[in-house]
């Protein structure tokens, strides 16, 4: 019962956070100087039809919300209007219908463009994160077990260095090295213009494109996971129940596996969740460097092309993804921890 209530409260919280992000997104794009909604109308790339579509879509002649005609410049408006007939509500309704506007650059719906990109991003992040977590935890376990030895010190220095590497720069260096020395592709997801005879050939090509971005991802995040695992495990290994396990005559390996790791996993899950924001930051940089057709790369392109609808859509989708992943981590945590699970 307690766990059901917990799940429900997490769910409500996640929905609330998503609503907050949507509002923030609205305010950013309507208040800050530059006002892309209006400013976009003057974008020479847009056709007359597109401009009209934007007007209708944003409801630009309507008040922003009750009592506010315009936020930038500030202009109060009538309060006694139908709240469903304001810019803010129109914005929410559009979002609910999955409508994120038309890209200035491609003149295609943003939602449609992103529906492909999100899977590419998930593939890249997922692969990199899994590798980084496994390797980082392994190194962290080793460093914690052998705390204060030379091995531990070396692992610590490596982690601090890895943490200090700007992701995009490591990507550039690996790209430079990999494409020149190893003949790996310089970017993209699949070699363009190639007709793959079968799925295996396509997967092989995909794999070759994935090597460098995944390697970058893994190195950048490995260090942090190692540091976290190391300090968490040292804390757990200092607990009394580890001494009990040792007094029982259990072997070191068994103590690590059955007693220490089970406990250390709990803070790890929390920290992986907190890290998700950085994960997205990593995706933006890596996808930019490797021209990977994902959401992060879209952010990079949109900045360069001043493609505000795309930028807005990508930001929203990235934020919602992180919020949902956080929710998932929360639920995994309450499932892993018997103190929460059983009552």
């Amino acid at each position: 019962m307690k766990s059901l209530r917990l799940i429900a409260s997490r769910l409500v919280w996640a929905i609330f956070t998503i609503l907050f992000v949507m509002t923030l997104n609205f305010v950013i794009f309507r208040v800050l100087p530059g006002d892309p909604a209006r400013g976009g109308l003057r974008d020479p790339r847009l056709t007359r039809e597109a401009i009209e579509a934007i007007r209708v879509r944003f409801g630009l002649e309507k008040p922003v919300i009750n009592c506010v005609q315009s936020l930038n410049p500030w202009e109060p408006g009538p309060c006694a209007v139908n709240p469903f007939d304001t810019q803010f509500f129109i914005y929410l309704r559009n979002l609910a219908q999955g409508e994120l506007g038309i890209s200035y650059h491609t003149n295609r719906p943003v939602a449609e463009m992103m529906s492909q990109m999100i899977w590419n991003t998930i593939l890249l992040i997922g692969l990199g994160q899994i590798l980084a977590i496994i390797l980082g935890m392994g190194l962290g376990i080793l460093a914690a077990w052998k705390a204060r030895t030379r091995l531990d010190f070396g692992a610590l220095l490596f982690s601090l260095l890895a943490w200090s590497l700007p992701t995009f720069w490591l990507g550039i260096i690996l790209l430079f090295w990999g494409s020149n020395q190893l003949g790996l592709p310089i970017g993209g997801r699949l070699t363009p213009g190639v007709d793959f005879p079968n799925t295996a050939a396509m997967l092989k090509d995909l794999g070759r494109h994935l090597v460098l971005p995944t390697l970058t991802y893994t190195i950048v995040f490995l260090g942090e996971y190692m540091l976290i695992m190391r300090s968490t495990l040292i804390d757990v290994l200092s607990e009394d129940f580890i001494l009990t396990a040792k007094a029982k005559g259990l072997h070191t390996f068994q103590i690590l596996k059955d007693h220490a790791l089970r406990n250390a996993m709990l803070p790890m899950v929390t920290l992986i969740a907190i890290n998700l924001g950085f994960t997205v930051a990593g995706a933006i940089q890596i996808e930019s460097v490797f021209s990977w057709p994902g959401l992060g790369g879209a952010v990079f392109d949109a900045v360069g092309q001043r493609d505000y609808p795309m930028l807005q859509g990508a930001f929203l989708l990235l934020a919602v993804t992180v919020i949902l992943a956080n929710l998932a981590a929360d639920l995994v945590y309450s499932w892993l921890d018997p103190r929460v699970r059983t009552d």
């Binding site: 800050l32 100087p33 924001g277």
Partner: peptide, 19 residues
Amino acid sequence: IMLVIPDLPLTVVIVAITK
């Protein structure tokens, strides 16, 4: 809430708009 919103995309969006 602020902790959950990814920093870099938010920063990029705001800086891109405010010049």
